[in-house]
């Protein structure tokens, strides 16, 4: 009963949008309401302060001081202002890494989302085994990244990899997936798309479940075809969930370093290094860590996410206002 009521309403809100609700919203901002609201938020705020504020502070502090291994241990690094950032900007790795980061993120996101959504729509019609198969799609997430990424690099090995074996079986020549500067970035993107599909599938699937079948029936009565139904009904109703999925996907993709690190170490000669792998290489991938520049690159990534987050909020607000 309650279920059916829940599921029916999104349609109404989508058809007769918000102004009335907006007023309602403001009215609800009473003082006691605020107390209750923040009481519910208190745990997460405390949690954020304890577990995120300190690491974030530390990352910023690392990037603003001139850390050597000695001063890292003794804790007496001199304040360096933005010297680490200047160093990073001037580095020859900067421009290619920025470009790779953008390509990696945009291509990964586009494919992860599209494939994830297509699969979610496919699985949303119940058929035999659909639930089990859907669960199996999550299996890649159960594997520690060190294992799944190693498996990919195994499969993509130039000489003994199964992908090249299949290619030669099909009559195509071998591709140096991981060892050619022209291919390495695409190889890590492919692996990353594979890893990202389950996430998109599951979240979007749950989103689809919140759309009641009655809407589809109504649309079908109006004579809409399957394709039209998807674009006119499913996609708009799925928008809030899609938006957050893409945004989270963006944050996760910007951050990806382990897949790339395990598969190619960002190489050969930097051809697959992104900001995330560069940051890791500077801070942890060498015998002598350069914590300062490493943290500076990491903070640039945070700024990138910040920028995208602001865009998201803007778009969301415009939608709410429309």
């Amino acid at each position: 009963m309650s279920m059916s009521r829940v599921t029916r309403t999104p349609v109404r809100t989508a058809r007769a949008p918000v102004p009335a609700q907006g007023r309602e919203r403001r009215a609800a901002r009473t003082r006691s309401g605020q107390w209750a609201a923040w009481a519910f938020l208190a745990p997460v705020v405390v949690y954020l302060l304890i577990f995120y504020a300190y690491p974030l502070y530390r990352n910023v502090e690392l990037s603003l001081r001139n850390y050597t291994v000695r001063s890292f241990v003794q804790g007496d690094a001199p304040f360096a202002g933005f010297a680490n950032y200047a160093k990073v900007f001037a580095d020859a790795t900067f421009a290619p890494a920025l470009w790779h980061t953008i390509v990696f993120t945009v291509v990964s996101l586009a494919f992860q989302f599209t494939i994830g959504l297509a699969l979610a729509v496919f699985f949303s019609r119940n058929f035999r085994l659909s639930a089990t198969l859907r669960a199996l799609f999550l299996v890649p997430w159960l594997l520690p990244l060190i294992v799944s990424a190693s498996t990919w690099s195994w499969m993509l090995n130039s000489d003994s990899g199964v992908v090249n074996a299949a290619l030669s079986w099909a009559g195509a020549g071998p591709v140096n997936w991981l060892t050619s500067p022209d291919w390495s970035l695409w190889s890590v993107i492919i692996a990353n798309i594979w890893i990202g599909i389950p996430f998109n599938l599951v979240v979007l699937y749950s989103g689809l479940q919140a759309i009641p079948s009655a809407v589809y029936e109504a649309a079908a009565l109006d004579g809409a075809g399957a394709w039209q139904r998807f674009w006119r009904v499913t996609f708009p109703l799925l928008r809030p969930v899609s938006a957050i999925t893409v945004l989270l996907g963006l944050v996760y993709t910007l951050k990806v370093f382990d897949i790339i690190w395990i598969m190619t170490k960002g190489g050969p000669s930097g051809s697959s290094s992104t900001f995330a792998t560069w940051s890791y290489r500077l801070g942890f991938g060498n015998l002598v860590p350069s914590f300062g520049p490493g943290a500076a690159v990491g903070n640039l990534l945070i700024l990138m996410a910040l920028a995208f987050g602001l865009v998201y909020i803007r778009v969301q607000r415009r939608q709410a206002a429309a």
Binding site: A42, V46, L49, I50
Partner: peptide
Amino acid sequence: AVLAAAAGLAAC
């Protein structure tokens, strides 16, 4: 909220 959180921190 920050105050409340700080109190929480101390308590923790």
